[in-house]
Design a protein around this nucleic acid. Sequence first.
DNA 1: TAGATTGTTAATCGATTAACAATC
DNA 2: TAGATTGTTAATCGATTAACAATC
Lengths: 216, 216
Amino acid sequence: MNKQNIPDIVIQRLPIYLQALNQLLREGRGVVSSAELGHLVMVTAAQIRKDLSYFGGFGKQGSGYNVIYLIESIRAILNLNQIWPVVIVGVGNLGQALLRYQGFSRKGFEIVLACDINPSLIGTRINGLEISDINNLEENLRRLKLQIAVLTVPAACAQNVADKLVSYGIRAILNYAPVVVKAPEQVHIINIDPVVKLQNLTYYLDTKDYQGLDNK
Amino acid sequence: MNKQNIPDIVIQRLPIYLQALNQLLREGRGVVSSAELGHLVMVTAAQIRKDLSYFGGFGKQGSGYNVIYLIESIRAILNLNQIWPVVIVGVGNLGQALLRYQGFSRKGFEIVLACDINPSLIGTRINGLEISDINNLEENLRRLKLQIAVLTVPAACAQNVADKLVSYGIRAILNYAPVVVKAPEQVHIINIDPVVKLQNLTYYLDTKDYQGLDNK
DNA sequence: TAGATTGTTAATCGATTAACAATC
DNA sequence: TAGATTGTTAATCGATTAACAATC
C-alpha cells in the first residue's frame, strides 16, 4: 500500500480513532467492534473498517479489534512511536498558552524551541523554556533538525515566517494565524484559526439582527 | 435556497474566502476574479463560483467580484453582522489564553462569561472579566441567552459539561478537549484538539525510529 | 465590439455505504 | 456448530471540475 494512495481524510480520522481507543483502554476494555468504535467517534462501522483496511487487517471476525493491538498499529502508522520535537514561533497570548499546555508533552510532542521578535520576551522563561531570538531561528532549526512548527505570529507576517521555516527544513506547520499560509506541496499545513471556526458555527445560529443580502 | 441543502463543506470555506477578501480590502483592491481569489485560498476558480452560487450571484461577467460587496454578502450569509457573545468554559492554560486573545473581539466575538470549577480562580479577573463559578452556569447562561460556548475543560469531564451546556440552551460548541463530544444534531460542534492535528501531520514526516506493524 | 469572467450544467472524480463471503 | 464481525467489493452518493452560454 502506497502512502500516496491513501486519502488525506482517512489519515485525519486515525488520530480520532486513537483518542477513542485510548479512552476504551483506560476503561479496561480488551476488544471493540467497528460498530461500537464508530458509535464513539460518530462515523459508520463500514467507514472504520474501510479506513483501517488501507493499512492492513487488524481485527478478528466474530469478535472485533483488540484495543491494545489497534492502538499500537495506528500509532505505528502515524509515526507516533517517538517523541516529536516542536518549535513554537511567536510567543504572544496563544503561543504562551501552548507553551504552558501540558497536553503536548503528555502525548509525545515536546516543545524544544520557542522564539519571538519581541526583545522584552527574549531570554525570559516560560514553563522552563527560554524564549530565543527569532533572528537565530535558522541556526537553531538547523541544529535541532526540527520538522514541526506551530505558527502563532500575527497574520501580517505569517507567510513571511512560514517561508523561512520551510527554507530551514520545516516540513509540517500547524498554523494559528488568520491567513491561508502557502508552501510547497511536500510541506503539510493545517490551519486552525479559532475565529474561522466560530464564523463557521454562526451560520447555523439564530440571529437577532439579520440583514441578509441573499435569498436564504 | 434552503439552508438544509447547502453542504457543510461549502459553509466551512466561506470564512476562509472572507479572510482573503479582507486582506485584499486592506491592500486597497476593488475587484477580484474567482481565479485570483482561488489562488489566494488554494481552491479552484470553479469551486469558488460554485460555492457562491448556492447563495446567489455576487459577481459581474467580465470583471469579477466587487471586494466590499462580496465581503458584506458573505458576512450576511454567516450572520456576522452582529456581535456574538461567547462563554468560555474551563479557564486552564488554553482557556486563559483565549481570554487574553484579542482576535475574538476584533472579529466580532465577545467573551462575556468565563467559568471554572477551581475556587482559587473564581472571582479573579483575566483581561477585565471576572471568572464565575461553574455551579452558576445555568443561571448565567439563561440570563445571557448565549448560543456559543468554547469548551476548554479536561477530557474527562468534557462530555458531561457539554451535556449541561446543551440543556442550558447552547447551540454551538468549539471543543478544545481531546474527546469527540456528542450532542443532539441541532447542536453544532467543531473539534480542534491541537494534538489530533499534530498527530495527523506526523504521518507525512520522516521518522528516525520507525517500528511499523503494517505494510506501508 | 472584443475580451474577460461569471453562473450553471453536465461530466468526472472520489468518498461513503451496503452487502456479503470469509472466518473467527 | 451457530452467531458475530471482519475485510472487501460493488453500488451509491456527493463533491469537484470542465466547459460554455450569457453578459458585462
